[in-house]
């Protein structure tokens, strides 16, 4: 008699364990949470929205005031945060951070004199020589290939000519 009881108990336990395998319906994955941007937007926030920058707005993205480092080359603004060791504070090219670096790149000079500050109009680069423009072309190609373009540099009506 005892044996029967033990066997029955064991069987019930086994059946209980196998219940999932024998009787459960198909497993569903809840994508509601995944597809709704409002519930969790951590991933979509990684993507930078392309927009226009005035020199004044751009000047904040120097890796010091704001963590991101942007520089402008020929009207396009590039996110160079990946190259923080070059463009970040105390890096060799830190002068370029948050500035329109076109003239500096064309003249192969990192000096602050070749850069316009945010309260000056955008540099039109009219007086560059052919050699300087060629050098700028090379640099622009490098930026296009290496860093994402996050927007355009537009004139600030308050400080334009």
């Amino acid at each position: 008699m005892e044996n029967y009881i033990i066997t029955a108990v064991v069987l019930i336990v086994i059946l209980f364990a196998l219940k999932n395998i024998l009787f459960t319906n198909v497993n569903n994955v809840d994508l509601e949470l995944e597809i709704d941007p409002e519930t969790d937007s951590s991933k979509t926030d990684d993507v930078t929205v392309i927009r226009d920058f005035t020199p004044r707005e751009l000047s904040n993205y120097n890796g010091f005031d704001l963590e991101k480092i942007y520089i402008a080359v020929r009207g396009n603004v590039y996110d160079v945060s990946k190259g923080r060791q070059f463009y970040g504070p105390s890096g060799p090219y830190s002068n370029f951070a948050g500035h329109d670096a076109s003239r500096g790149l064309a003249m192969n000079s990192f000096e602050i004199e070749n850069l316009r500050s945010w309260d000056q109009p955008i540099d039109e680069l009219d007086d560059l020589t052919e050699i300087e423009l060629k050098s700028l072309d090379g640099w622009e190609g490098m930026f296009k290939g290496k860093y994402p373009c996050v927007g355009k540099l537009v004139a600030d009506p308050q400080f334009s000519k």
Binding site: T44, D46, V47, T48, V49, I50, R51, D79, P148, C149, V150
Partner: peptide, 12 residues
């Protein structure tokens, strides 16, 4: 693979 930038009113 998702691009690093997107335009406003558009997805990456």
């Amino acid at each position: 693979s998702i691009s690093e930038t997107r335009k406003s009113c558009e997805s990456a």
